[in-house]
Design a protein around this nucleic acid. Structure first.
Length: 567
RNA sequence: GGGCCCGUGGCUUAGCCAGGAUAUAGCACCGGGCUUCUAACCCGGUGGUCGUGGGUUCAAAUCCCACCGGGUCCGCCA
């Protein structure tokens, strides 16, 4: 409904601009605190026609012609600003649309296939609090893009043949795995020990190199050892992801591209561009015309492939699967992803869209699996959920332990996901236990609580026999400020979905969710539902609560957060 | 040394790409609100040279330049 409203406003104002005798300009209306939509075209035109912006705005508005029953109530001016007010039709139709579409409310204006890769952490240990920023951005974007209508395939690219994995494989033969630990945690422990051993005995590096060569050449026994190591780590990583409600459609192994010959194919294609030369035994690509001073190594001097080479092959394959390719990567990949795009461009392949997020570090410095300096996602989730359990126990002592556990699970995951997704990806952050375990702020649980409140009213009304979910109340009796504000806020869902999808910025949805919950809580405070003065008003308000419940549930789902009916 | 990102009240943060109406919200702090649909809530208040200095513009948190502070990257790791 919002997008339709914008289209009507643009169309009406474009006509008015023409009738006023001005040249065509972009209307670009945006919501403002002064009106439902506001346009600043008068400023732009004023510079061209050498009149004052106020005069231009008035001339445009004088030429506005509104149809009856459209979504626009009125168009006026405040100084140079053109302010647009939405009509009753807009309010009523939003109300009806939400209730008829339910969980399908919002989005569905795009189509096409997207292949989105995220997380793809090395299988040398558990996910830590830095990795999950990638997972949560990736999973939330996947949900946003699906909501807007795209068919999205979420993939995890498994590095099953790099140096790190060679070290893990070697480590498993020289150190005992702790059987009491989750497999990915146990892998990290032996991996850390192996790295310490390597540091003291540099001659072992040659042995690791040899393992990598054997894997690349297809030595079945060494491959099996690598695969076993990778499986152990991936199994643990996968369970952590699912615990966070992060879902991948497929896990793609790097080694597949070596064995299928696609890696050597892409190397040949790059060679044919004439950009390659041998430097110190390694094959490098010259990308200086793309602005990269440093060349890109695509083959080691011993002939084996690198992560980058295999990634190029992976992207060639991706390009055949989808209309758009999106990669979620940490800031440390900025240079290499630029080189990857340039190389793909040079061989005439579709380039990925890269979403970069800045680092999460610890107060004592950056995280490192190799040095054993990290906080695992599992530890964070354990502590947050334990903290959430205490909170439910305190607030709902009458409920069953099962209820408490279920709610604590949802609230804990919701709090973590929200805290991570609400911040723009380009901000680097420092992990802080105190902040991570603090629920007293307007975060994920705040939105979930609003949903629980809405559900609770509907449940009670149902029990009292005064609410039929299939009924179609008359929305036009909703005239309180808090009611109108809430409906308009619900209507904005399409706008934020579109913007988040267009800009690939998931935090926009998080901010919206908080504003939506805020609008509902104000309505809750100011407009009694079950105790409304008349039956007609009560029914309309129940309908509005249902709209809010649906909108909140859709937002929560888009953010990958649970929507509790009670908490 | 060079490239990229960030710098907004005590702390966290939106707005910056597409410059315009009193700069967004939370935490903390101060005051008020549960005989009423869940107070994980609501209402009000204190608090900001938008890192610094220049420039462009009728208008700059937003664009340009320089500098300062933090992060990150700079070929055979990923």
């Amino acid at each position: 409904m919002y997008l339709e409203f914008v289209n009507q406003v643009v169309s009406v104002l474009e006509n008015a601009v023409q009738r006023a005798g001005f040249e065509p300009v972009e209307i670009a209306p945006e919501p403002s605190q002064h009106a439902d939509l506001s346009s600043r075209v008068a400023f732009k035109l004023a510079a061209v026609v050498r009149k004052s912006p106020v005069e231009v705005a008035n001339q445009i508005v004088e030429n506005v012609q509104l149809r009856k029953n459209c979504l626009i109530e009125s168009i006026g001016t405040t100084g140079p600003y053109i302010n647009i007010k939405a009509s009753r039709t807009y309010i009523d139709r939003t109300f009806e649309t939400v209730r008829s579409k339910k969980e399908d409310f919002g989005g569905n204006f795009y189509s096409g296939k997207i292949l989105l890769e995220h997380t793809s952490a090395n299988p040398n240990g558990p996910l830590h609090v830095g990795h999950i920023r990638n997972s949560i951005i990736g999973d939330t974007l996947t949900r946003i893009l699906r909501k807007t209508g795209y068919d999205v395939d979420a993939q995890y690219y498994v590095n099953d043949m790099g140096r790190q994995i060679a070290i893990v494989s070697w480590a498993l033969e020289h150190f005992e795995m702790d059987p009491d630990l989750k497999s990915d945690h146990a892998i990290a422990n032996v991996y850390i020990k192996a790295n310490a051993r390597l540091e003291d005995n540099p001659q072992l590096v040659e042995h690791i190199d040899n393992l990598m060569q054997l894997v690349e050449s297809g030595d079945e026994e060494v491959i099996k050892r690598f695969d076993d190591a990778v499986d152990l780590a991936v199994k643990g990583i996968r369970s952590t992801l699912l615990r966070m409600n992060v879902h991948h459609d497929s896990f793609v192994n790097e080694s597949g591209f070596v064995r299928s010959g696609e890696v050597s194919d892409i190397v040949d294609k790059i060679r044919k561009t004439g950009r390659t030369y041998v430097d110190d035994g390694a094959l490098v690509v010259d990308l200086s015309d793309y602005g990269f001073e440093k060349t890109l190594v695509v083959q080691r001097s011993d002939g084996t492939s690198l992560y980058t080479t295999r990634d190029l092959a992976y992207h060639e394959w991706k390009a055949r699967q989808a209309d758009r390719i999106i990669d979620i990567l940490g800031a440390d990949h900025k240079l290499i992803s630029g080189q990857l795009k340039a190389t793909l461009n040079a061989v005439g392949l579709k380039e990925p869209e890269i979403v970069i997020f800045e680092f999460v570090s610890l107060p004592e410095g950056s995280m490192s699996t190799r040095r054993g300096q990290f906080i695992t996602a599992d530890e964070l989730l354990d502590k947050v959920q334990a903290r959430a359990f205490e909170e439910v126990e305190k607030r709902r002592p009458e409920m069953s332990p099962e209820f408490m556990k279920e709610v604590a699970g949802m609230v804990g995951i919701g709090a973590v996901r929200y805290d991570i997704i609400k911040v723009s990806p380009e901000k680097s952050t420092v992990f802080d236990w105190k902040a991570a375990l603090d629920f007293e702020k307007q975060g994920g649980p705040f939105i979930q609580y609003s949903h629980a409140r809405a559900s609770s009213i509907l449940k009670k009304a149902g029990e009292e026999g005064i609410w039929d979910p299939a009924s179609k109340p008359n929305a036009s009796v909703l005239t309180d400020e808090s009611e109108i504000t809430l409906i308009k806020q619900i209507a904005l869902f399409d706008k934020v979905l579109k913007q988040a999808a267009d800009d690939l910025k998931p935090h926009i949805i998080a901010i919206y969710g908080r504003d939506l919950a805020d609008a509902f809580n104000q309505f809750y405070r100011f407009s009694p539902v079950l105790g409304a003065e008349t039956e007609e008003l009560r029914n309309a308000r129940l309908g509005l609560v249902d709209c809010a419940r649906i909108a909140l549930a859709n937002v929560l789902d888009t953010l990958g957060m649970g929507a509790p009916e009670s908490m």
